Simulated scan of single mutants.
Amino acid sequence: MEREKYAKELEVAVRVVHVACALCERVQERLLSASDDHVISKDDDSPVTVADLSVQATISWFLSEIFGSKNVSIVAEEDTEIISKDASAGLLAAVVGTVNESLASAPKYGLQSPETALGTTEVLEAIRRCNSTGGPSGRHWVLDPVDGTIGFVCGGQYAVALALIEDGKVVLGVLGCPNYPVKTEWLNYEYQNHQTNSNFASTIPDAWGKGCVLYASKGSGKAWLQPLIAGDKILEWPNCARLIQVSSVDDPALATLCEPVERANSNHSFTAGLAHSVGLRKQPMRVHSMVKYAAIARGDAEIFMKFAKSGYKEKIWDHAAGVVIVEEAGGVVTDAGGRLLDFSKGMYLEGLDRGIIACSGVTLHEKFIAAVYASWDSSNL
C-alpha cells in the first residue's frame, strides 16, 4: 500500500536521480581529463565541486516544478554562500551552464525541460530553496547531491542520494551510484589501487558494467535496481528495473564488512576489534559514500558499521535513502543500541546510541549488537 501511496513521488525521484547521475558523470569526466579549478573547500575542508551545486539546483528545480514550490520542503547539504563570493564567479558560471545542460536532457528521462534556459538568479534560487531543517511533521525531501565527494574527485565511488521523509519517517529512498560496478571484486580493486589509479571508473571493462540507481518505498518489501542509460537511449519506467535482495550469509566467517575510507569521522580500530570478536575473517571493503548501503542491499556485502569519533554528528542526508533501501531489501539498520534511526529531529540523527550498524539479516545484526555491549567499556571512543 505504501508503494501505491508514494508512486508518483518515487517515479519522479528515480527519474531526477538518473538526470543527476548523468550530470555527475559528465562533470567527473571533465574533472579527471583536465586541470579543473572548480573544486573548492568549505569551512569544514570538504571539497565542493560543480557537481554538488549543479545537482542540488537541478533536483530542486524539478521537484518544485512538478510538485509546486510552495509544497516542496528540501533538506540538503549545500548552500549558496560558497558561490556568492566574487572569487567564485567562474564556479557559478560553470554551475549555471551545467544545470542548463542537464535540464535540456530531461525528455530523455521522461521529464520536461524549461521553456528557456535558467539564468544565474534562478539557479541560485533553486539552490537556496533547499533550506529546510526537516523535523517531526510535514513532508521533507532530503538530498545529498554528491555523497562521497572525495571519491568523486579522485574518480572513485560516490552517490546521489534522495529520500522523502513524512512526519519523521523515511517513506522512500533513491540512491544513484554512477561508478558502482556490477562485479563486487571491482569495489575491492578500487580501494586497493586508489593510491596509484586515480581514475578508477575508466578501468572497469564494459563487460563488467557500471552505474545503477537503487530505490525502494517503505513497507513495500521490495527494493529495485535500474542500470544507468547511456548514449541516446531513453529511460524506460519501470521496465528496466530488477529486484534486489540482501545476502543470505549469516556466518561471520563468510561475511564482508563495509566501512568508510575516511578515518576523520570513523573509528576504524574499534570496528576492527568488533569484527574480530564476532569472527569476521575477510578484509573490510572500504568505499566512499552511501555505496556501502547499496552493497548490502544488493547482496555484495553483509555488514556496514560506523562509529563516529566524539563530537561528530551524523546528518540525515548521509543515511536516509540508504537505510530504507537496505530495509526493504531485507536488511536491518539500527544504532549500536539496537534502536531504529530517528529521522524526526531535524538535520541530524539526534540521540544516536554510539554508532550505526547495518546488516543483511537479523542473525548477524544481533551478534554485532551483543559485541558492542561486550567491548564498549574497553574501547577508546
Rank of each mutant, 00 (worst) to 15 (best):
A241G: 00
R298P: 00
V278A: 05
L214C: 03
N193L: 03
S277I: 10
N131W: 12
A253M: 05
D147T: 07
I83Y: 13
G176K: 07
S113A: 15
S266M: 04
L280M: 15
A370T: 08
T116S: 14
E302G: 08
A20D: 04
S102P: 03
E259S: 12
N131M: 02
D144K: 07
D36L: 11
Y158N: 11
V362A: 06
K367C: 13
H276D: 13
G209Q: 09
M1P: 06
I82M: 10
K282L: 14
G155H: 13
A51V: 09
A104Q: 10
R242P: 00
S64F: 01
V99C: 06
A321N: 05
C21H: 12
V142F: 11
L31T: 08
E4A: 09
G351Q: 03
V213N: 11
K309Q: 06
S46C: 08
A94E: 13
T121Y: 05
D206Y: 13
H319R: 01
L92P: 03
A104D: 09
R30D: 15
R354T: 02
G90R: 08
E366D: 14
V123S: 01
G135L: 09
A93W: 05
G231I: 06
A358Y: 07
I165R: 03
Y109D: 06
A22G: 12
D144A: 10
K315T: 12
V12G: 00
N197I: 14
V19Y: 07
N188A: 11
A20C: 04
R354D: 08
T116H: 10
E302H: 09
S60W: 09
E259G: 08
L235S: 07
H288L: 00
G221A: 03
A106S: 14
A201Y: 14
Q28R: 15
R3G: 01
L164V: 12
L214P: 06
R128V: 03
A13P: 04
N265D: 08
D318M: 02
